[in-house]
Write a protein that binds this DNA or RNA. Structure first.
Length: 269
DNA sequence: ATGGTGGTCCTACCA
């Protein structure tokens, strides 16, 4: 059997409900993880996804900011959600995915803090929060590794760690999302947890790979000043199962788009 | 070197 897991920072699930439904219809992933749903749990547009063939839904939202969700065609069982940096700010949700045949998978969906504009934790507490969040994720990943390697970690990690994850490595060295301290922290998290970067396994450097283009670029497609902020990682036991990946760049050109596009990895289990 | 756009929810904050 194959299992396709997708992730997308949707920047308001209510405003862009039609875009999510279009993606589900066209790409038909088995599981879709969303970030920045910006939707309180009581108002999550659950029935639209049920009608679209995704009846298994978990969400963790709040008013105005953040928010994560998992939509699935396969049965889900809620797993423990993390409270990082002591904040109940809806930046992580986890689920066990239970295929009809075969063992289950643990899916962790993260929305890492963006970190503000100034890459200095003294001048900018948001940057400190981002680094602290990554440090707590690293501790968590080390503990998880010991007991569960059939795991997948996806989400908007808000860091483009490799040279060809950005349009210009040199121009972005002091720009939050590509500073050396963040890139090192993300790669340390990856290494500590034993995670495999599935998208880079299939599209190795020096190929340019982007999942985000700023709203502030008037001609995003021609300028192509993208960054790879969104990621799909798998635990070591799943590495041999990595089969294919897709990044739907076209979604950046849809009407009223998110600034992120959906990406997906198919596992042959 | 600077400012550029978009979402939420009412005034500024976040990305």
């Amino acid at each position: 059997m194959t299992l396709t897991i997708a992730t997308w920072n949707i920047n308001s699930v209510r405003l862009r409900l039609d875009l999510v439904l279009r993606y589900l219809s066209e790409a038909a992933p088995d599981v879709l993880c969303l970030q920045e749903t910006k939707c309180p749990d009581a108002e999550f547009p659950r029935s639209a996804f049920v009608k679209a063939g995704y009846p298994h839904i978990l969400h963790r939202g709040m008013k105005g900011y953040n928010g994560v969700a998992i939509l699935s065609r396969l049965p889900l069982a809620a797993a423990e959600n993390l409270t990082l940096c002591g904040r109940e700010d809806a930046r992580h949700i986890a689920a066990e995915v239970r295929p009809a045949d075969g063992p289950s998978l643990l899916v962790h969906n993260f929305y890492v803090p963006a970190g503000g504009d100034i890459p200095d934790r003294i001048e900018n507490p948001k940057f400190g929060h981002k680094l602290d969040f990554l440090a707590e994720m690293t501790d968590w990943a080390e503990r998880l590794r010991a007991r569960h390697d059939r795991a997948v970690l996806v989400g908007d990690l808000n860091i483009a760690p490799l040279v060809h994850d950005v349009w210009s490595h040199k121009a972005l060295l002091k720009v939050v999302s590509h500073t050396p301290i963040e890139c090192e922290a993300l790669l340390h998290l990856q290494d500590s947890g034993g995670w495999i970067d599935a998208v880079r396994c299939l599209n190795p450097e020096p190929e340019k790979v982007y999942t985000w283009w700023s709203y502030r670029s008037p001609d995003w497609n021609a300028a192509d000043k993208g960054r790879r902020l969104d990621h799909i990682w798998v635990g070591p036991a799943l590495k041999p199962a990595i089969a294919s990946s897709s990044i739907l760049r076209a979604a950046r050109g849809w009407e009223r788009p998110s600034d992120h596009v959906p990406l997906a990895v198919t596992l042959a289990l």
